[in-house]
């Protein structure tokens, strides 16, 4: 009797998991399904469509007219630069504030961490003004600087807490051998921070990859526009051709989803580490 209860209970628990999974993933299946149909087939009352002919043409249109390659290239370039800069700057600042002896270290650390509390979107208006005065709108800097600045606090926070685990004896030995500070930071400390570098990289990527509010405010021409713009611009252009809009959404979502599925384990670990420490 008890055993039977157990299996009923287990089935119920599985059902909960499956139901949540369906809720989370079904809209995306629906998206992909509709993106392969033609617009006329969409007005059904069924949940999914079985397209008469799979419309790959939707994706061709999305790929070409959505400037997919250009925007993807911009997104990758800007995000890689942002990640590298955040890692370098946060290691340097964390080392200076955590390990070195100076009076203002606490104050500077607090200032740098302040960015975590400031809402990004409150800086949109004044930054727009500032960048246009400095003729920086529509350049890569208009995105790179805020992306780095707003990911820095988190990076700095994580680096400081991981740095605490590194024994000072290692540095003492390095100093005995005549190592300068820069070599200690970049050749001795940095390699030891490998796992936290991965965490910071993942968090920075997740923060910035999908950002579009700043991009929309600070950019005018196509030169530096990032991937979300494929979707943003398309809805106006193809406002009545729904199927192509679905295709462009699926296409824009694809790179991040594929990378996530491939690196699933690392990303899960990174987010978990970042979130628990942060």
């Amino acid at each position: 009797m008890k055993k039977k209860n157990m299996t009923v209970g287990k089935c119920f628990l599985w059902a909960v998991l499956v139901m949540m999974a369906v809720i989370q993933i079904f809209p995306l299946i629906w998206l992909v399904d509709f993106s392969l149909a033609s617009s006329t087939e969409m007005f059904t009352s069924g949940l999914l469509i079985v397209p008469e002919k799979i419309q790959w043409g939707n994706y061709v249109k999305a790929f070409v007219d959505g400037h997919f390659l250009l925007y993807l290239k911009n997104s990758v370039l800007i995000n890689v630069l942002a990640v590298v800069l955040v890692i370098l700057i946060s290691i340097m600042a964390a080392f200076a504030c955590r390990r070195m002896h100076w009076r203002l270290s606490g104050l500077v650390k607090m200032l740098l961490l302040m960015g975590m509390m400031i809402p990004i979107h409150a800086t949109l208006l004044p930054n727009y003004k500032m960048y246009s005065q400095l003729h920086m709108t529509d350049t890569i800097w208009a995105l790179l600087i805020p992306y780095v600045a707003f990911s820095l606090p988190q990076g700095m926070f994580l680096m400081t807490s991981f740095m605490e685990a590194i024994p000072e004896e290692i540095e003492e030995a390095a100093v005995m051998d005549g190592c300068g500070i820069y070599r200690i930071v970049f050749q001795i400390i940095t390699p030891l921070l490998k796992s936290s570098i991965v965490t910071v990289a993942i968090m920075t990527f997740l923060n910035n990859w999908n950002e579009f509010m700043m991009a929309r405010t600070y950019l005018k021409t196509d030169t530096w526009k990032t991937l979300p713009f494929s979707v943003l611009e398309f809805t106006g252009q193809y406002s009545s051709n729904y199927a192509v809009q679905f295709a462009v959404m699926a296409l824009t979502a694809a790179p991040a989803v594929i990378v996530y599925i491939v690196l699933n384990k690392h990303i899960t670990k990174g987010v978990a580490m970042g979130a628990v420490k942060g």
Binding site: M20, Q24, I25, L206, N210, F212, T252
Partner: peptide, 11 residues
């Protein structure tokens, strides 16, 4: 469960 999180808010 995590997939929606990596998709752009725009999408």
């Amino acid at each position: 469960y995590f997939i929606p999180n990596v998709i752009s808010v725009a999408v």
